[in-house]
Design a protein around this nucleic acid. Structure first.
Lengths: 343, 343
DNA sequence: CCACGCTTGGAAAGCGCTCTCCAAGTCTCC
DNA sequence: GGAGACTTGGAGAGCGCTTTCCAAGCGTGG
């Protein structure tokens, strides 16, 4: 890599016959440079194959042109298989894709930072030192202290998903309650009388909102109590929950599942139990992931515009980086229901 | 972020009552420091909340503790929807997960770099300047010039997937021919006489190998010619290809699909056509992605150990970074067949 | 014709760190 | 007891860049 020395500003200056400062001005597009010199400098740049050293530049400007995507899993350990599950879930990729759609045109890099329980201090330090200009945070654990730490350290950051505790930090999220209500309305409209829920972990805000939103809406439709079984967002846990629900409430005719992957599992169990979907049991998922389209029957689901949300998070972050004075703003997306074959 | 000045080495040195150099030694674990001073320095570090500035450090050491994951798509443009497809495909996440499993314990960061046709020079420059210590390259287009450029610039790099043209650069790949042969053997063993292929793009090496591997194996089993329809690895293209194949060869009884997503599409079309799987038509996919398990009937597929491959790529890269002298080595994984319900 | 203001280029001081020298101190051995 | 070998800490020179400050060059008005 450092096979032979790369051309530096100094070299360009020598070739162009001007001073280092002048070259720097030209490269950074500062006016007040004689057009003739301007020309000379650029041709010297070409001639030498000069590329500015970002490190050196960042050191003095305190800007890196990089934002960090922080994946926080403070409760898990390095060897936890959880992480591999997380990455293979399309969720991660959709977020990256959404971020990139904004970052790339802006010429900003994305650095992936995973941080466990022990890494918080280090992360904050690196961030303050200018590892990155800001951070988009994907906070997995329910009571993650990271959002609060970031706010305290005044690091530009945007969360994807509302933090469990209120923290003065921007975030983008979906109106999960409304999404669940959409599902409930659809089920009620088709006259389902014995609904049930397969939820996510009880301490994740999104999970809690989906449960309460569904129950509240169902209550309005005359179903004061809806039984619930919870999973952990994997297909397998969806199967388990479905089996448990079926055993406890054999007569159920509708089920709201907190994400598509678990819904897929539920679909399999229903099939094995000889129940027809949607005739015997209607199913509504959540996320509108690619799994929903691929499922047979195709899954009716609440659309989570994750790419859009991530893109918005990137935009909020960049705005904050450009002007640290902008106030904390959060954006809540309105969900829509995508009706397919399971209702 | 730069709200107030962060503690620097200088500050720590002052507090500890020693020189900057001594603090640097202690922090970097260099021997020959009086245990007493050693103690003093660490307590000064604690007291000041000092965190080394990576940028400054990298500038002088020419090591960043970062590797780049370069996603090269020299033939597409920024606004191409291709990229969003790419990120939502589990492929990307599996690679990231595999890389992280090695990088994270080693304390190395991952930076995502997307590069289009115009960005090559810039990328090489940044890499040589020490943006990253090395690169893992996910090269999408068939005739991507990037591998050659990297080799020429002597930048430590490892490709995931064999380059289209031979280039003196390490890579990890699957023995695609052998994988396809495995699928062929399975199909032949079940006495299928009219096989067909749904392949990927004709200019991607992996695609080519899967086709030739399947055809060669089938020839050995007495089927000199196997009809083929190609797609672009998306579910939709799989559906189209399946329809075309069915129209041209109504009697086919076995199909080898170059990835699971397209196989999913094929399964749907077969179902709609009233054909039973596997009784009427047997299907073998490729990748063993999560989609294969979720499919109904569950998909028999050739397992592509992508996480392992990515992890190995990371290992090769780190070895190369530590010792630029290590020779170019490539690792070819042996595929296995995962038999489920579609054969 | 000189004083003054404006434009434009250059010198040099850092950004925070590492690491090579070198000097001072400590120990050993004859 | 003193010379040599070894240990240990500090001074300072950069890494490649930006940016402030200043001087020189120019034009203008009194």
């Amino acid at each position: 890599m450092q096979s032979q020395r790369l051309p530096t500003l100094e070299d360009v200056a020598r070739v162009a016959g001007v001073s280092r400062a002048t070259v720097s001005r030209v490269i950074n597009g500062i006016r007040n440079v004689d057009p003739l010199l301007h020309e000379q400098v650029w041709s010297a740049v070409d001639q030498t194959g000069y590329v500015p050293n970002r490190l050196a530049r960042s050191l003095v400007t305190r800007r890196t042109g990089t934002v960090a995507l922080v994946v926080s899993d403070s409760e898990t350990h390095d060897d936890d298989p959880f992480m591999s599950r997380f990455f293979s879930d399309p969720y991660f990729g959709r977020v990256v894709g959404g971020l990139m759609s904004v970052l790339r045109p802006a010429g900003i890099q994305l650095a992936l930072q995973m941080v466990g329980a022990d890494g918080h201090r280090r992360l904050i330090g690196d961030l303050r030192n200018g590892q990155a200009d800001g951070a988009v945070v994907l906070s997995l654990p329910a009571r993650d202290p990271l959002p609060a730490l970031l706010a305290e350290a005044a690091i530009p950051a945007v969360l994807i998903g509302r933090p469990a505790q209120p923290v003065p930090i921007s975030y983008v999220d979906l109106d999960n309650e409304a999404g669940a209500a959409l599902a409930a309305a659809r089920l009620a409209a088709h006259d389902r009388r014995r609904p049930a829920i397969i939820s996510g972990p009880a301490d994740v805000p999104a999970s809690v909102d989906r449960i309460s939103g569904f129950r509240r809406a169902m209550a309005r439709h005359g179903h004061p109590w809806v039984p619930l079984e919870s999973g952990n967002f994997t297909q397998e846990s969806g199967e388990q929950a479905m089996r448990a629900l079926l055993a406890a409430h054999p007569g159920l005719d509708a089920i709201f599942v907190a994400n598509d992957l678990m819904a897929l599992g539920a679909l399999l169990v229903l099939r094995d139990a000889g129940l027809r979907v949607p005739q015997d049991v209607a199913v509504v998922g959540f996320d509108d992931s690619s799994a929903a389209v691929a499922a047979r029957p195709a899954l009716t689901t609440v659309r989570l515009p994750l790419e859009d949300m991530a893109a918005e998070a990137a935009r909020l972050l960049l705005a904050r980086v450009d002007d640290p004075g902008v106030r904390v703003t959060s954006v809540i997306y309105e969900p829509t229901l995508v009706v397919r074959e399971t209702t």
